[in-house]
């Protein structure tokens, strides 16, 4: 389990992590940018999948409980595909399991949005919608990746994510354009989560290397389609897009909030306490 100190000193940890450099310090792409980028894709799915699995047994109604658990299952399945490929590309014999259970917070590459705490049901659905609307555009673009393995995973995942997006958009609309209480909660969720959406579209040296190799799109190129999906759904949901421009960043480079430490403490406990346990 990562200690609070690990989280607070993420930058220092970055330079110690094998194969990973502090990206800002590098003009050129970091070593093994492809594996690094694959970890970003896999970690987004893993951390969001874990987050929504926390609802299992707690959702407001049985159908929603089942739906959240199934969405989590899809995302964990996609995690396995991305992280297995990351391990293969990295070439150090690490599997999806090793990457999921034996890295510390500073080695995770997910965006900060997906590690945000669940909050209420509306907050969880808003976070899901903002992520799904980005995820579908990313997976669409990746289907023409120069790497056939990436294109194959993207084509598979896109079918599942299209379904997630329809569901999260439906519920954001229903709850936004619902009662006074539900609308107020959804607007609060949107206002709180908004500063975490910008990171989805911020590129760095890894993204640039992927774009130049034709493996993945420039993250900024996904912005227009995302904006239009979000604008349409928010308008129908009678919600107001926040005006603030401040955006958090750092998750993709391993600088996380304390929230990730708690997720890992829960998710990794067994493998940390009983290394190599199988059943």
């Amino acid at each position: 389990m990562p200690s609070l100190t690990d989280v607070m000193t993420a930058d220092a940890d970055l330079t110690r992590a094998p194969g990973i450099r502090t990206i800002a310090a590098l003009g050129a792409a970091p070593e093994n940018a492809f594996a690094e980028w694959l970890c970003r894709m896999g970690d987004n799915c893993l951390i969001l999948g874990h987050r929504i699995s926390e609802w299992c047994g707690h959702a407001p109604v049985l159908e929603e409980d089942i739906a959240l658990a199934n969405t989590a299952l899809d995302l964990i399945g996609q995690t396995r595909l991305w992280l297995d490929l990351a391990g293969e590309v990295e070439g150090k014999g690490r599997s999806a399991d090793t990457l999921a259970y034996l890295r510390d917070a500073a080695q995770f590459r997910n965006v900060l949005l997906v590690e945000r705490p669940n909050g209420d049901f509306g907050h969880t659905l808003m976070r899901q919608f903002l992520f799904d609307a980005w995820h579908i555009e990313m997976l669409r673009a990746l289907q023409s990746s120069a790497d056939p393995r990436v294109a194959g995973i993207a084509a598979k995942a896109a079918k599942e994510v299209a379904y997630h997006l329809e569901r999260s958009a439906d519920l954001v609309i229903r709850l936004g354009d619902g009662t006074e209480e539900s609308r107020a909660r959804m607007q609060t969720a949107l206002d709180r989560l908004w500063p975490y959406t910008g990171e989805l579209f911020m590129g760095d040296a890894v993204d640039q290397a992927m774009a130049e190799a034709g493996i993945a799109p420039d993250p900024a190129s996904l912005r227009a389609a995302w904006d239009s999906t979000v604008a349409e759904v928010m308008a129908t949901a009678t919600l107001v897009r926040p005006g603030g421009t401040f955006q958090h960043r750092g998750g993709k480079q391993g600088r996380h909030t304390e929230a990730l430490g708690y997720i890992l403490a829960d998710m990794q406990f067994l493998q940390r306490a009983y290394p190599g346990a199988v059943w």
Binding site: I136, R140, A158, K159, V161, A162, Y163, L165, E166, A169, D170, I173, T229, E232, V233, T236
Partner: peptide
């Protein structure tokens, strides 16, 4: 599902 929300809404 095709994830295109235009018709969905």
């Amino acid at each position: 599902a095709d994830g295109r929300l235009a018709g969905r809404v």
